[in-house]
Design a protein around this nucleic acid. Sequence first.
DNA 1: TTGAAAGCGGTACCAT
DNA 2: ATGGTACCGCTTTCAA
Lengths: 369, 369
Amino acid sequence: MEKKPGAPRKSSRPVGMKDLAEALGVSIGTIDRALHNKPGINPETRKKVLRIAQILGYRPNMAARYLSSRRSLTIGVSIPLEIAYFYDDIRDGIFEAASAFEPLGVRLLYRPFMVLGQEEVEAFEDILREDIQGVVISPGYPALLKSRIEKAVRRGVPVVCVATDAPGTRRLTSISVDPYANGSIAGELMGQFLPARSKVMIVTGMQATVDHGQKVQGFRQNFPRFCSQGEVVSVIEAHDEESEAYEKCRHILRRNPSIAGIYVSTANSLPVIRAMEDLGLVGKIKVISTDFFPAMVPLIESGKIAATIYQRPREQGRIAFQTIYRFLIEGIRPPAHIQLDPAIIMRSNLEFFLVKSGRREDSQSGWGK
Amino acid sequence: MEKKPGAPRKSSRPVGMKDLAEALGVSIGTIDRALHNKPGINPETRKKVLRIAQILGYRPNMAARYLSSRRSLTIGVSIPLEIAYFYDDIRDGIFEAASAFEPLGVRLLYRPFMVLGQEEVEAFEDILREDIQGVVISPGYPALLKSRIEKAVRRGVPVVCVATDAPGTRRLTSISVDPYANGSIAGELMGQFLPARSKVMIVTGMQATVDHGQKVQGFRQNFPRFCSQGEVVSVIEAHDEESEAYEKCRHILRRNPSIAGIYVSTANSLPVIRAMEDLGLVGKIKVISTDFFPAMVPLIESGKIAATIYQRPREQGRIAFQTIYRFLIEGIRPPAHIQLDPAIIMRSNLEFFLVKSGRREDSQSGWGK
DNA sequence: TTGAAAGCGGTACCAT
DNA sequence: ATGGTACCGCTTTCAA
């Protein structure tokens, strides 16, 4: 299939810098200066260039850029190393999404941190010192990071928050699962599972924590809508401690044998089940929990946990990368928040989440530093 | 490691074809012919080139390859135009996933077809005639396409099936939602929603259809597990006809007032609800349906439909593109089937699926033809 | 402030 | 069977 020489191509070839240059009758060098905020250009000219680029729908050719500049686009990743499975999956999602762009010079700079202590701040500053074009973080203590995030943004380095947010900063966006929706779904399921007039209890971390509070709220709002005259008779704060959850649960369940359902709004479901087992209540109480990790598999299979609300960390990681990449390359500014829908894991769809959580040891090979 | 006086190798630069050429004292053209199995080269020379490439650890620079090879990577897309929402979403998923690679020269060639008649075959042959590197299809009548798919594969054009499959062909993979899982989840939910000894009915299309049969199977297997002594008292085949569904439902529901739940295993849920309304049974029967389209929104909001099992067409499209792309670029061969988990849509997560289904008119701009 | 031109690592094609 | 070279779209440097 040959094209006649000289015949203008009908199908619209992607517009390049050259096209912009021709359209404005200037040189390609000028286009470059305008597009990349380089000094030494008349502001007027720059405006014109940006406008025509917008109009013609210019999109940079990454291959050419990489080839020419030999400078790779590096994105820093600073997420916790603790809470093993959750952040592992986020990392996997980020690395997997990035891997498609590896041949084009996209690099990740992975700087995980231990959640305790100052390490988080250090990791972030460490990353900022490198030659990076963007950062993905999951701030454990947003307050400590606030000024640093602002500094990064001021320097033109976009920051994307994943799983958690850094309110009051100009981070590009945050990717997370709406905690209220999380609680709402749990509430709706519980309401549907239990007969009218059922009594339930909630096990959470600390209601003062925004995330936890929202989940509890969502549950409380929705449970009664689906379980007429249903009632939340107790809310336990376990502060993510196993022993505390166990003791408090045991105590409440003993005093309140009419409880028919428990909503565990954190990943702290194991001690709750243990308390139920010790009191011989398994099978009598529906448990809906949060998050997902291997130890939960037998509990779901056996029905001890009826359902769990999953935050899909892998997906969050994928979207985090995609968002920052698209912003850097195509200038597409995402909405201020990206909320994704939590998944509901039950016995009959458990298998899907098992394979997805498979560890891949080699996921970092050739990456980072 | 010095080779020639006056031509010191810069340290640690990745070896390119030029390096190979210099090392062997041949031209870069020869290197090209050797590396890419092109004709017109002495087998001896080829061997030498391949050996030195191995030794020096030559790795092609993808960016340069994209840039240089005029022909961009084009992927054909041939999916139905009917069943509006479902395939629209698949298309959107494909286009959105592809858009990130547009700057890298990835093109889509979109050739939708009307489901009736020969158009499907024509669309496929049409695509094969073009210069494409891969195809994504959603075969309505796999049998008709079988020989063509084989032909494509023989010619080195990978074929990915999305939503449906083409059994007995060497298509690269198929992306779909396991219908059995689909039914199982519905069964589990229904079992949890209803008290013991409940009676339910199933409305399906044709049990002979593999997809429909599997869903019914999944439901029947799982419902009793979660609803002790629960029973499926009736299975209606409505052949995707509204009127047939309405009449049959009405008839059964009248004769069988004890029915507490209905599982609609196809998108044909509207007439079922209508029958219930006409008989004053709304609120007395739990309905779990399949798929999702705008008309269902008020039904879910009002609780007339308790939950619907959603096949996430957008996600299917995304994965279809990603799979074929990764195969073409990175040579990663996917598993023979990619099953994704169906989503459960209920009232409290309804909002997430509303925004995701938003039509974006411009999704094709600058793409395909 | 702007223009012109030399690469970056391949591919494709013409000449030898 | 081989060598030579004009691009691809962009960055960078040097000249005007």
